[in-house]
Design a binder for these strands. Structure first.
Length: 660
RNA sequence: GCCGACUUAGCUCAGGGGUAGAGCAGUUCCCUCGUAAAGAACAGGUCGUGGGUUCAAAUCCCACAGUCGGCUCCA
């Protein structure tokens, strides 16, 4: 049975937006010839597959440009990524910003030239001969045929069923311009890359993602079907940059990282401090309403505790080094009294275990929920520190819940509900779940324990009705976890709450309780951080709201602005009534003019400006101005005060005039 | 930790071997004003730190620190 050749993709699809096709489910170049028994679907440039092909082809052009400028530069890999692409190189000298400009120019020439991408199947031997000068490509050829056929970034080079090389061919002369080992498919021509692309930055990156390997130089770029889409993407980046919590932290005077204290160690200024206080106060109240007991533990401990908990074994590199205390040395230098190693704590759980163990426990006490805003210190590598999201000193809203085997599922279920309700109250309401399962390389416990625990978490996750994403191998060594990912106002996702099972520590600490039948049993331990770290949660909220916090979280909730100095006293009366009701309010008595005061406090993102002049004073009223410039004029004082207090209590966001 | 870039006044930034500049913020004066910047004066920096080259370094070189962008890591 032989099928007749009917056509290639160019004749099948005349739409210029079609850049490739799916033949029997597989992505292929348009140049491939298909038969009438093949199932053929077009792939347009704006489809997810089409965008990947566009970006991958742009990466090829980047590599060609780099090698045109410096033929000695060795090639790594160059896959498409979210919103763009990169290519890794091993150049004699790292790329400078000027190099990037020159490379971009060269790329423009290649795009304009309209080189054709031509696929060619080669044997391993041929590939090795052609790529003899490319040691990294040779390494990839060597890997092919192993088990490594996954969907990782390397597979764009050698992931197919056969080895292929793509030749870039001059459309007029047919001359070979460049070639690269690649699985494809590609755009028919470099011209189709158009003008919706650009290079972004260069950065170091380990070859094949391992710090044991040499560091290559990676160039990042972005590519879109049209210039308009490129601009849209750039605008999106600018919007995200505007709400960067580090920038807002300075502008709104919320926190800082004084060099004198050390990297990754923040101080919160009064305005940041009050926001943090509100976040914590609300959280504490919720904990108490939900059956938690609050505990407290010190910041340092003797090393033995972290030997018991195995932290010194598993995480020593991430801990601050020991303080060696109490050692006595005589005049000859002999130790006459042994010292002790103390450590700053990287986690709170060992302390909570000691609280559990402080006396005999009964099944009647379970679930026992111990909560603490515990400050921990982790020696994060210098290069990983980033604003408030990755720090060396942080406060976890940490809890450890001790339950019987039978209680596990129900407890996790109610934990998740608690998490959702709490996050919604802070204004985050778009979630999905992630299930992190065992990393066989890095775990303790039996297969049966893991299987059962993972199954329990999966069931709870599925029953929640939310999207559940797998994170294979993402678990900590001591047990699987289910985490809540929240989407913020501009669609970015953040891992927030985690609920984690631990069948290691109860054993290490020999925790037990008296069961109903009089036997002693080991409790199951659940680690639960709801906000994660307060610092990081603070940063997430700050970026989510772009600094315009809901009224209850705003540092200054109400500012009084007199139309002229004369009305300052009248506003003092209104503001002091608000202060009596617990509202953070003050009058701006500075000698700026009124419009300037409005500008100042608008930039400061104060949610409510109360303005008063002659009209308001004679009516016993006050005028509102909200963040978006909307107004409510002549509101009677009682009504104004009540409405503000009610809005704070309801934890509502206020950006615009409310309907009365 | 690794690769690269950057570090000038409280903030944002200009300058670039001959000894420091702007805008905003601050202070004082003046104005008394109805919804995003009245006006004036003053004050503010050993140009990240430490070495070096030089007659002279904020500027050139080296080291260190910090920040940023990535990589690796993230209990």
């Amino acid at each position: 049975m032989r099928s007749r050749i009917v056509a290639d993709g160019f004749s099948l699809f005349t739409d210029r937006n079609v850049v490739a096709m799916r033949v029997n489910g597989e992505l292929r170049d348009l140049a491939v010839e298909v038969t009438e028994t093949d199932l053929v679907e077009p792939v347009t440039i704006e489809s997810p597959d089409g965008l990947n092909i566009l970006r991958h082809s742009a990466a090829h052009v980047l590599a060609q440009a780099v090698q045109r400028i410096n033929p000695e530069t060795k090639l790594g890999i160059g896959p498409p990524i979210t919103d763009g692409f990169y290519y890794d190189f091993d150049p004699a000298e790292p790329f400078t910003p000027e190099d990037l400009k020159a490379i971009e120019k060269e790329m423009q020439r290649i795009v304009k030239q309209g080189q054709r991408f031509v696929r060619r199947v080669v044997t391993e031997e041929e590939a090795r001969a052609e790529l003899a000068a490319e040691p990294y490509k040779l390494e990839l050829i060597g890997l092919k045929g192993g088990a490594d056929q996954g969907d990782d970034n390397e597979s764009v080079e050698v992931g197919g069923a056969e080895l292929t090389i793509y030749d870039n061919v001059d459309p007029k002369t047919g001359e070979l311009c460049w070639k690269d080992l690649c699985r494809g498919p590609h755009l028919p021509s470099t011209r189709m890359i158009g003008n919706g692309w650009g290079l972004q930055r260069s950065a170091g990156a380990y070859w094949r993602g391992s710090e044991k390997n040499p560091m290559l130089q990676r160039i990042y770029g972005t590519a879109w079907p049209t210039k308009d889409e490129l601009r849209e993407y750039q605008t999106r980046l600018e919007e995200a940059a505007k709400r960067d919590h580090r920038k807002l932290g300075v502008e709104l005077d919320l926190f800082s990282f004084p060099d004198e204290i050390g990297s990754g160690l923040a101080v919160f200024h009064p305005k940041g401090g009050i926001i943090r206080h509100e976040i914590e106060t609300f959280m504490r109240n919720e904990l108490l309403r939900n059956g938690y007991e609050v505990v407290n533990s010190p910041h340092i401990t003797k090393g033995a505790l972290f030997e018991t908990s195995q932290h010194l074994n598993w995480y020593r590199d991430g801990m601050f080094p020991a303080m060696h205390l109490d050692e006595v040395v005589d005049a000859e230098g002999n130790v006459t009294k042994q010292g002790q190693d103390y450590y700053l704590k990287p986690m709170n759980c060992p302390f909570h275990n000691l609280i559990f163990r402080a006396r005999a426990r009964s099944y009647r006490e379970l679930p026992l929920r111990l909560a603490e805003f515990g400050t921990v210190y982790r020696y994060e590598k210098s290069g990983t520190l980033s604003g408030l999201t990755r720090v060396r000193g942080l406060t976890q809203d940490d809890a450890h819940i001790y339950v019987t085997d039978e209680q596990v599922k129900e407890e996790i279920k109610s934990q998740l509900e608690f998490v959702f309700a709490t996050l919604r109250a802070y204004g985050l309401d778009d979630f999905y779940l992630e299930l992190s399962t065992r990393d066989p390389e890095k775990s303790v416990g039996t297969d049966a324990q893991w299987a059962e625990a993972e199954q329990t978490l999966r069931e709870v996750g599925e029953e929640s009705g939310l999207e559940l994403v797998d994170d294979p191998g993402g678990a900590a060594f001591y047990g699987p976890k289910i985490s809540v990912q929240a989407r913020d106002a501009i669609g970015r996702t953040w891992q927030l709450s985690t609920v984690q099972l631990d069948f290691n520590q109860p054993a290490l600490f020999e925790l037990e309780y008296a069961a109903a039948d009089g036997t002693r049993k080991q409790p199951v331990m659940i680690h639960r951080a709801l906000l994660g770290s307060i610092e990081r949660f603070f940063a997430i909220l700050l970026e989510h709201y772009a600094g315009a916090f809901p009224l209850w979280l705003s540092p200054l909730q109400v500012v009084g602005i007199p139309v002229a100095e004369e009305y300052g006293e009248y506003l003092d009366g209104i503001i002091s009534r608000l202060r009596e009701r617990g509202v953070r309010a003050e009058v701006d008595h500075s000698d700026d003019r009124m419009p300037k005061k409005i500008r100042t406090h608008t930039k400061d993102k104060v949610p409510i400006q109360l303005i008063a002049g002659e009209d308001d004073r004679s009516a016993g009223a006050v005028s509102f101005r909200f963040r978006d410039g909307t107004q409510l004029n002549g509101v009677p004082i009682d009504e104004a005060v009540d409405r503000i207090v009610r809005t704070i209590e309801a934890r509502e966001q206020v950006n615009s005039a409310w309907s009365v």
